[in-house]
Design a protein around this nucleic acid. Sequence first.
DNA 1: GTTGATTTTTATGTATACAATCCTATTATG
DNA 2: CATAATAGGATTGTATACATAAAAATCAAC
Lengths: 245, 245
Amino acid sequence: MSRLTEIKKSDPKKGEKKTQDDIVYEHIFDAILEQRLPPGTKLNEESLGEIFGVSRTIIRRALSRLGYEQVVVLRPNRGAVVASPTIDEARQIVFARRVVEKAVTELVCDNAETAQIEQLKQLVRDEQACFDRGDLGAGIRLSGEFHLYLAEMAKNPPLLSFQRSLVSLCSLIIAQFEKGESKSHCSYDEHFELIDAIAQRDKSKAVALMMHHLDHIEHKLSLDDEAADNDLKAIFSNVLGRKSS
Amino acid sequence: MSRLTEIKKSDPKKGEKKTQDDIVYEHIFDAILEQRLPPGTKLNEESLGEIFGVSRTIIRRALSRLGYEQVVVLRPNRGAVVASPTIDEARQIVFARRVVEKAVTELVCDNAETAQIEQLKQLVRDEQACFDRGDLGAGIRLSGEFHLYLAEMAKNPPLLSFQRSLVSLCSLIIAQFEKGESKSHCSYDEHFELIDAIAQRDKSKAVALMMHHLDHIEHKLSLDDEAADNDLKAIFSNVLGRKSS
DNA sequence: GTTGATTTTTATGTATACAATCCTATTATG
DNA sequence: CATAATAGGATTGTATACATAAAAATCAAC
């Protein structure tokens, strides 16, 4: 059996409680975020098994988890592929996040402990460092973790679980539509502002900032939408030309 | 191999696309709702496999799905048990539902088609019939399906997926705290009112009704909370008496 | 040369066998 | 008699083998 990566003994860090499928799950998820597995990529169970040195059983578990979060699409009898959400689906996901983030923000303003707020700041500093040194994948992931930690602070496990799924999807979307050009992904500025509002327990300001934050994501989608639209028009311009002539 | 229930050939109805783990999933879930599997019950993989005439592989998939929805608790190396949410957890679940149902109700008021509204009415009529003939389990399930169908009408897949999980959990909670006595579970009246408000596209009225609807569930929890508190006090009254004397 | 049917191959779905872990009952010891 | 240690049994975790369905490739016919 060929094993490109032994995972049983790797990552002997602090956590140590991570089970094998967790590790596989995270590796695949990271690869998707960092675009090493672009949308639409077929995820072959046996290949993945060889890569991680585990049986298909483990791979299958990881894939169903990713499927449940809708980061990959599971097609019965036809295997799993990396999800490639359309602009419309992306908008629906952002809408769902608006709903959750509003509730989370309000809860956090009520319940946040000062120690947690410090933790938040550190997270954003790490995020900033990633973007500054050009590590986009890690940056997007940390940006997601910021929002996840907020949901944790809200002390509502069901909302947290939903947020986890939404953040995963949003990260996928950002990675998909962040086509190099728009490097204006300085979300960490807005994260710092948000933390200040929370520290001041200014609920309405915090919510407004959060909505504004999501506006930015959605705005980027709109830009890409137009771009895609233009591309399509360019591609079929000859057809259109013929038809109208 | 002993098979108490052959599922390969059963249910040859309309759907037909249901895979084996779906069927197992639904059977277990229904059993939980109908309290045939009370909270805390250990779910032995091999036993379930024999009952449904499938291997542990299928049972495991069904259990992880139930685990993801938090209807059962998966304890590593120690198997699955039916979830037994505390009153506090129940309140958090209801809170999450408030968040989702508000958004869903608003979306539905905007997007509902008349044919769907008819479908809704039929669902509630079925629900009413179940409660009238004393089939509590089926009633709770149909009540849940009403809310699920609403989420479907909202045309937002992520919200729908979250709603599915929340409705499952709420059904479990209702089943758990619906201790025979409070048969005042005539939720279908409120469902009919809600449909009217939606048909009239009266967003604020519909949302108010929905919140009111959830108030009822939460109120029932509070009652049970006090009851449990009283029970405990009754149980340990002698101890308290001795201490204070 | 293209289309359509048939075979071959590959990948997924399911069952089962083995390994690791946890629970329990028995025994030993203070 | 209570507690701790250990051995046995039972249950979950993982790997693998087999069954089934989809995809690919080959060949036939037009």
